[in-house]
């Protein structure tokens, strides 16, 4: 596992000068990812903040080969690229010793929702690629609309906190579990605050043959109504409250990578974010309790599976 000193000596493949918001959680994830590949990377990105923010013509932040096609087809696009690579290699049009890593990227909208089918298909077909979802919990690029990754009670522009409906009425989809159910060789959840864990998982995923998946929580000052300087802290609290457990499933064995010494109450994470402000009103306290109960039970479930075979 490389140290930060070693990582900093590697080429910066994601340049500054992009238009992502100040304090955005996505770039630190990308910078670490690209440093962890160990070979040239060809990437595709679903429509969304990352795509728009990094490639406003004639500028690009990417120092790797990169393509954006549409919103729902990141996994299908990488399937085509990776198939072309295998085909051209087989035909001798690419040198036999040339190694390329394939990376598909998408936000939670492009992954949990509209790109879900393409992702499932690509995982099932077994293409050799890494899919990374930066999960900021809503359609941030189009102005903070709820997605199936949006937490219960969160206020978004399509689930506003009104007097009749206090924010999003549903629990979030557990995409990582669904991905694991595809029986792929490696899947994990990570967070940018724990760079060591994230870099390790990225390295492992890139070096595993077949489809691999990382779901990375990505704080969004704009959509979370949180302070930009607190982005990394917010990510850390998401993990310390067990809202976003760090775990991996490698060849079917589940491993919880981090168990907080003291599990923090979910309120500590929620209170940093304006999107949950209304939950602290007396009439909505039941939603806080509901959230805590659900997190506790899911964390319990995860701990029960720790070290066990899940497929």
């Amino acid at each position: 596992m490389a140290t930060l000193k070693e990582l900093s000596a590697r080429e910066e493949l994601f340049s500054g000068g992009h238009r992502l918001c100040a304090g955005c959680g996505i770039p630190p994830i990308m910078r670490l990812l690209l440093r962890s590949a160990g070979a040239p990377v060809v990437a595709t990105t679903a429509t969304g903040c990352l795509e728009v923010g990094t490639t406003i013509y004639p500028y690009t932040s990417w120092r790797i080969s990169w393509i954006h096609s549409a919103f729902e087809n990141s996994a299908a696009t990488i399937s085509g690229i990776e198939s072309a690579y295998r085909s051209l290699k087989k035909k001798g049009k690419i040198a036999a010793d040339k190694d390329i890593k394939f990376l598909a990227l998408g936000g939670d909208g492009g992954t949990y929702d509209i790109g879900f089918q393409a992702l499932s298909g690509a995982l099932e077909r077994g293409h050799d690629f890494l899919y990374v979802c930066y999960d900021n919990g809503a359609y941030m690029n189009t102005g903070i609309q709820r997605s199936s990754a949006t937490p219960l009670g969160s206020a978004t522009t399509t689930s506003p906190a009104g007097s009749a409906h206090p924010g999003k009425g549903q629990w979030r989809k557990d995409l990582t579990r669904i991905v694991v159910a595809h029986n792929i060789p490696y899947a994990a959840q990570a967070s940018p605050h724990n760079w060591r864990d994230l870099a390790k998982k990225a390295e492992k995923a890139f070096n595993t043959e077949g489809p691999t998946f990382l779901n990375v929580v990505s704080p969004c000052p704009l959509g979370w109504y949180s302070k930009p300087e607190l982005s990394i802290e917010t990510a850390k609290l998401a993990v310390d409250t067990c809202y976003w457990p760090l775990y991996e499933v490698e060849d079917g064995i589940l491993k919880v990578n981090y168990k907080p010494r003291e599990k923090k109450p979910i309120e500590e994470w929620l209170k940093l974010q304006g999107r949950f402000k209304h939950l602290f009103k007396e009439e909505n306290r039941w939603l806080l309790e509901e959230t805590q109960k659900r997190i506790d039970s899911e964390w319990e479930r995860l701990l029960e599976m720790d070290g066990k075979r899940v497929f």
Binding site: V42, T44, I67, S69, A70, E72, N73, A75, A76, T77, I78, S79, G80, I81, E82, S83, A84, Y85, R86, S87, L88, K90, K91, K93, Q117, A118, S120, G121, A122, E124, R125
Partner: peptide
């Protein structure tokens, strides 16, 4: 044939994979 056959899960993905492959020079 020496083709890589990608039996996708929809026509949307079929054309998307075609775009990816063609962009990769195939």
């Amino acid at each position: 044939v020496s083709t890589e056959l990608v039996t996708v899960e929809s026509e949307h993905s079929a054309m998307s994979a075609c775009v990816g492959a063609a962009a990769a020079g195939a």
